[in-house]
Nucleic acid binder design. Structure first.
Lengths: 340, 340
DNA sequence: AGACCCTATGTTATCGATGCCATATGTAAC
DNA sequence: GTTACATATGGCATCGATAACATAGGGTCT
């Protein structure tokens, strides 16, 4: 077997195909692509030769001469939200593939500008034609700007930079939806277990919650902060369990909600009888745990697709449409407050 | 802003750097890589020039001349097991990055040889130096063999092909561990909700279960088959709920276990009091649902790393060590059978 | 002192596809 | 019957880095 580290044996080149088909390399090149100016007869001969030799075009050469790699880079965060990451990846890959682009990934272990810079450099070195950043940028450094100025970039739910376009999911709306649902059920107060404040998503969901409460004339209680993990939800749930009059909680992610529920139950608070919980994500498991979670669904797959579409769009429209809408799935984890 | 579809403005090339540093392009090339035969003084001048011009090497040109792309392809399945997919991806990317390789992904929507062939072709076209197939291959076609013969390939938990190496996670052991745990608790029979039979994982876990029962002299009941989703677990759980003497269930994945538990509970069977459940994966949520799941943990991240290591290893060792071991996390979803 | 080698560097050919320009037909227009 | 223009094809330079070979200077060995 060939080793990945050794130079592979020579593959047939376009010149070989040309020779076999009795035409010039240039004609082969044209026959294999769009070019309308190729005799169907000739094209057939070329294709036959390609087939016979097992010819496969050399991407590097194509990139070198055309100047475009037909590859887009995707930056992901390694931790936090397995579900959304997978879904975004799948969406990006599907849309990119559709348009004839390959996807090269770069994951960063945690939110850190240094790691982010390195990832972007890596992608830039690879010569990607565009970059989708599926990481909530906190701060943007000069170096990052340098790269995104040269390479078209779309940030998925990140902060706006001078040179990157931002595709927003309407996170504020998600927070509002969740909170309003609880108020509509008759709850007088809604507590919030937020995501880490460096995450734009987390901040926006918190804002939606705050604004919704404000609109109802309710002073917001201090938000508790988790890190998206079930474990952090569990810890904040223990805190909530010690506060007597908590009847409704909005958790910024399903995974944290699982932890919150567990903590509340261990302390004898039933969900939804004593406390209602609503969260965001609608991961597959949300409907199958007990109680099934009421949660705000967001279509990450679609947002991945949309990011690529925005990236490849000819017109440089700076539009920041919230292409992806949030919808509420009402399940058993929420109910009216216990009559008191 | 530049568009992804237009030819980017020219970046400084090695020749530019050479000119600025007052040396030849070749010396620049040497200075930027290993080469011991470069005067430290010269190297310093070169690096200064690189810095000043913001030079970044052109990957395509490098690939074209060296014949190696320093990219490995990763084939993933879009559906099924968000968690394991993410973890494998992260592991592969980390190990590849460590070795100076980039990762290009290709996802297939479902287990289908046609789609598989297309993905492999896509990666081959990109000129990847190696391929990690994180998809449980069912059957291997001639076309697939053609590609894996030219490009080093490692299959993660897939079937053996003539030309690809296989890295096995010991799935049979996982099934055995789970089943034995239930028998040790005193259960006389263990039912199984299996994954789809096309998946090697599923088949091996089922085998582990069967063999373990056989060793205990217990005739295995017919396995029920799901598709990894919580929903399929739910449906099979409904079936199990109708069978009176079920006291122990081994589900092939955590997600299906969630569904099974839900179905049993809806039908008045308590977990673990009436029925014990054990599964495989140990996803993060397993510990935070109620009841917390007893499950067999497998380190997908590590297996991703190991796959890359195997791929890049110089010696063509055909070893099929089960580098990744399974361990049991005992939680509240299992207990001794109700005294009857 | 001549043969030899090691270091540091330059020169040139090469990887494979594409862009641009040239050329050879055919064919419609005036 | 030229001019004009579209169609089909070939030739050649080019992208940017690297491999292979060449060379110049200095040291070492016998």
């Amino acid at each position: 077997m060939t080793k990945a580290t050794e130079r592979p044996t020579r593959q047939p080149s376009m010149a070989d195909v040309a020779r076999t088909a009795g035409v010039s390399a240039q004609t082969v090149s044209r026959a294999l692509r769009d070019s309308p100016n190729v005799n169907p007869e000739t094209r057939k001969r070329v294709l036959a030769a390609v087939e016979r030799l097992g010819y496969r075009f050399n991407n590097a050469a194509r990139v070198l001469s055309s100047g475009r790699s037909h590859t887009i880079g995707l930056v992901l965060l390694q931790s936090g939200g397995y579900y959304s990451r997978s879904a975004v990846t799948a969406g990006v890959e599907a849309a990119a593939g559709e348009a004839g682009y390959a996807v090269s990934i770069a994951t960063i272990a945690r939110l850190d500008t240094g790691l982010m810079e390195r990832s972007l450099s890596k992608l830039a070195d690879q010569g990607v034609d565009g970059i989708v950043i599926a990481v909530p940028l906190i701060s943007v450094t000069q170096k990052m700007e340098d790269i995104t100025r040269d390479i078209p970039t779309v940030t998925l739910d990140g902060s706006r930079t001078a040179s990157a376009r931002v595709l927003g999911i309407d996170q504020k709306e998600a927070g509002r939806l969740a909170t309003q649902h609880l108020l509509d059920l008759g709850h007088r107060q809604v507590w919030h277990v937020a995501g880490p404040d460096e995450w734009i998503e987390a901040r926006q969901r918190r804002q939606g919650w705050q604004e919704c409460l404000a609109a109802a004339g309710i002073p917001a209680p201090p938000p508790l902060e988790g890190d998206w993990s079930p474990d952090s939800g569990y810890r904040q749930g223990q805190v909530l369990a010690m506060i007597p009059d908590v009847t409704a909680v909005f958790a910024a992610s399903d995974e944290m909600a699982f932890g919150v529920i567990r903590a509340l139950r261990e302390r004898g608070r039933s969900v939804p009888d004593d406390v209602s919980i609503v969260s965001v994500d609608d991961i597959e498991l949300a409907a199958y745990c007990s109680p099934p979670l009421t949660t705000v669904r967001q279509d990450f797959y679609r947002s991945g697709e949309a990011a690529v579409a925005l990236l490849l769009r000819e017109d440089g429209a700076e539009s920041e449409e919230s292409l992806v809408t949030a919808t509420l799935s009402v399940r058993a984890s929420t109910g009216p407050p216990r009559a008191s």
